[in-house]
Every structure is written in C-alpha cells, then in structure tokens.
Design a protein around this nucleic acid. Structure first.
Lengths: 135, 135
DNA sequence: CATACTTTTGTAATGATTTCAATAAACTAA
DNA sequence: TTAGTTTATTGAAATCATTACAAAAGTATG
C-alpha cells in the first residue's frame, strides 16, 4: 500500500485512499482486470467504494500515463499497469488476457505517416488458451 | 448488388436480400462502419430492415470469415471487408478508422507459443488525423 | 475556524448489444 | 402446387457497461 502511494506520486497523481487501493490491486494482480473485477475485489474491504470512483480513478490513471487501457476485449475495458512495450493475447473462450512479451521491439515502432500523428500502438492476439484448447 | 451476391457465395453465405445489401454497402464503403452506420445507410432504401438483422448478419459474416471485426474502437464494434493482413489507425478526436497498409508482413506472423493457440492478430494505432491535429 | 477546492458517492440516464418470441420467407418432399 | 419444415427477419424488451450529474464528504489554505 505504501509502494502504491509512492508509485502514484511518480505520475503526479494525488494518492487518496481509493486511488492507492486501486493502484495496489493493479500492481499485485497482473490480470488486466476490468472495472468490475477491480470493484468486486476491493469492495469487501472498502464497503463504501463506489463503482463510479473506480471509473474516475482509472480514467485519471490512463490520463496521467500510469496505466494503459486495452481495447482487446470488446465487452469491457481492461487495464494494464505494465506500460512497457508488449502485446496481449485474449482467449476467446474464457476471456482471460495474457501478456506477450517476446515480440520484436521493432513491432512497436510508430510507422511514418503524413496523414496521421500516431501516439500509441496496440498489438493484440486472439485464440484459445491451454485450458480452453479442447473446446 | 450482383457482385455482393457472388461474393457472399464464396464464403458459403446464403445471399438473402438483406445480406446482399449489407455486403454491398461494406464493399463500396471502406470506412470500417459500425452497426449503426450500416443500419442508417440502408434503412432509407430498406424501410423494414431491422437493426437486429444487421447484428445477425455481421455476426454471420465474421463467423464465415467474410468480414473482420475490429476492437480498435471501444465504443462500437467496427467491421472491415478487407481481410488481408493490414493494420488500423483510429483518430481519438473524430473517431474515424483508416487502414494502414504499409506494415512489414512479418508483423502479422503468429508468434510461437506453447500456452496458446493464436488464431488472429490485430495491430492498432491511435492518435490524431490530419484534420484533427489542431486540437 | 471558515472558505475554497478536490474527491467520492449514489442515482439516474444513455446507448450498444443480446434475448426472445412472433412473423415471414425459402426450401423440401409428396 | 401444397403442406410441412427449416431458416431468416423483425420488433420489442431486457441486459449491461459506461457516463452524467448533483449532493456529500474530505482535504488544503488562509
């Protein structure tokens, strides 16, 4: 919890109780959680926590660059505290999202374009994970 | 319209009036439209068309491999008739989605993985387009 | 302490997508 | 062609993630 506090400051985010709790969860659960998963995980120990706060908090984290929002899952937004260059895999069967780290750094280069100013890249893979392959 | 008819058959999709109309729109409007854009474009000339049919139709097209569903836009699903290997750019300001064709073919290779069976890749870029750069 | 400012909360609204049952259309076999 | 069967379309209602908003609580400042 202390670390989350410090961590937030690095991104010039004022560390409220709620924000620290959310960041603590993100740092210790690298599962690319949805808003609902974060809310469900925290609400038992923070009964007054509002889901709107979780939305606000994640929006702020993304705005400040502390967290990356992933579009890989069309159903829900997912969030990743790991802001280093890496890809993601989502199992179409169970919906779990995993990191794909062994990609060439060149894949994350921003292509030259006269038509666009490109700010970020997202590399996503879809398929079936080990436990769902049978399906 | 005739071509759409033929085109659907190539993917073993029975070409109903509605399906041909949707495919015709997709083939002639390479704008990665949302369900609503497709519905709005067709309903003037097909007043009885139901939005549910547009949903059903696109689901079928995707299932049969005639069309690709894009996750780049968190707000709405978007559809692309071009199933060749290419990336996409979305302007965060106006929301328009554009093709990015000049990417190395190697970027679309499926990475080796013992943990997953990877079926598809999606490469997405976010930023601002020419007309929105000012913002 | 008093005031201003920021954050959190809960409720209500929005909007995309899904569900589902009824209708219509297409297909099959006699 | 017709009756029976399957498939596709339709529209209304339900679901569910996200957003809007205003009130309440908390924090900082003088």
């Amino acid at each position: 919890m202390l670390e989350s506090h410090q961590y937030l400051r690095q991104f010039s985010i004022k560390p409220s109780v709620q924000r620290s709790a959310v960041m603590h969860f993100l740092l210790n659960n690298r599962i690319h959680p949805t808003i609902d998963e974060i809310y469900m995980a925290l609400s038992p120990t923070m009964p007054t926590l509002s889901k709107t706060t979780v939305y606000n908090t994640l929006d702020l984290f993304v705005e400040k660059g502390a967290v990356r929002a992933l579009a890989i899952d069309e159903k829900n937004a997912r969030y990743d505290v790991d802001i280093s260059a890496h890809g993601h895999f989502m199992c179409k069967s169970c919906g779990k999202v995993h990191d794909i780290f062994d990609l060439k750094p060149s894949m994350f280069q921003i292509p030259e374009s006269e038509s666009f100013r490109i700010d970020s890249v997202e590399i996503s893979y879809l398929g079936a994970c080990k436990s769902c392959k049978g399906n």
